[in-house]
């Protein structure tokens, strides 16, 4: 009996620990005065300020636009890659490719970040290509998203009933037709999951974005980083609240999908 209560209290404490900071952020987004020490009154003004702040809105815009484009491109490249890799017979080449795929995931963020940054700057110096900016930011995001897509799609491929592609070809289908009509419908849930994971990874990214962006293009994470070093900004709190709601929503969505699948 005591055991049960202790474990319940313990769980409660941990969840409190996990959520208290978030709720504090949310709480003080409604606070009248900027300073932390008192609760001075309920207001929504910081939310309005948030939408009026060009810098923040731009950061939000770039965050989402990069996430959307990068996740879509990564999903296309990753899905095709997963199928191609799945079809390969076991060989040194296949293992090598699978290992290369894991590199961005296995490396610390900062190493991937400086590697890409150095590469872009170096090439830019020699060939005036890959100037740091939107393009390089996008490329970086696609690069770290692809492994997640491949990792989401491959299990679905392995689960496909044996011989279905051969059966389709036996019935006269070209490889592309078989892909379209047999493989794609089967792995579709994996593709969507991969897309959502990639999207979320992009939205949240800081380190890689920090190093590979340029021309004043920021995302939310970079913005918070620069603001935080300056001081408290209730607009950031308001932003946190909105993001929290978005994340909850996305997660419930994904949860419903995995239940269906």
């Amino acid at each position: 009996m005591v055991k049960k209560h202790i474990s319940r209290i313990y769980t409660g404490l941990i969840f409190f620990f996990l959520y208290a900071p978030i709720f504090i952020l949310i709480l003080f987004s409604f606070n009248e005065k900027k300073n932390l020490t008192k609760i001075s009154g309920f207001t929504l003004k910081w939310y309005f300020e948030l939408f009026k702040d060009r810098q923040i809105m731009q950061a939000i815009y770039y965050t989402f636009i990069i996430a959307i484009i990068a996740s879509i491109i990564a999903t296309i490249i990753g899905t095709l890659a997963a199928i191609g890799l799945h079809n390969r017979k076991k060989s040194k080449r296949k293992t090598a490719l699978l290992t290369i795929n894991k590199i961005p995931m296995m490396s610390p963020d900062i190493v991937t970040a400086i590697a890409l940054m150095s590469f872009f700057i170096y090439i830019n110096q020699k060939f005036s290509f890959f100037e740091l900016g939107f393009g390089t930011l996008l490329i970086a995001h696609i690069t770290f998203n692809i492994p997640y897509v491949i990792l989401s799609v491959m299990p679905k491929l392995k689960q496909m009933p044996l011989n279905t592609v051969e059966a389709a070809m036996d019935l006269g289908a070209s490889q592309f037709y078989a892909f379209r009509k047999v493989v794609l419908p089967e792995i579709f849930p994996g593709i969507i999951t991969g897309l959502l994971i990639a999207f979320t990874m992009s939205i949240d990214d800081f380190v890689i974005s920090f190093f590979t962006t340029g021309h004043g293009i920021s995302n939310i994470s970079i913005l918070v980083f620069s603001s935080a070093r300056v001081g408290i900004n209730p607009k950031i709190n308001a932003l946190s609240t909105l993001l929290f709601i978005t994340v909850m929503f996305l997660l419930i969505l994904i949860n419903k999908r995995t239940k269906k699948v």
Partner: peptide, 20 residues
């Protein structure tokens, strides 16, 4: 000649029906 161009059809051991 690839399998999709041969005038031959196959019944597979594990049926290989299209689940969707």
């Amino acid at each position: 000649i690839p399998s999709n161009k041969r005038d031959v059809n196959t019944v597979f051991q594990k049926y290989a029906l299209f689940p969707h």
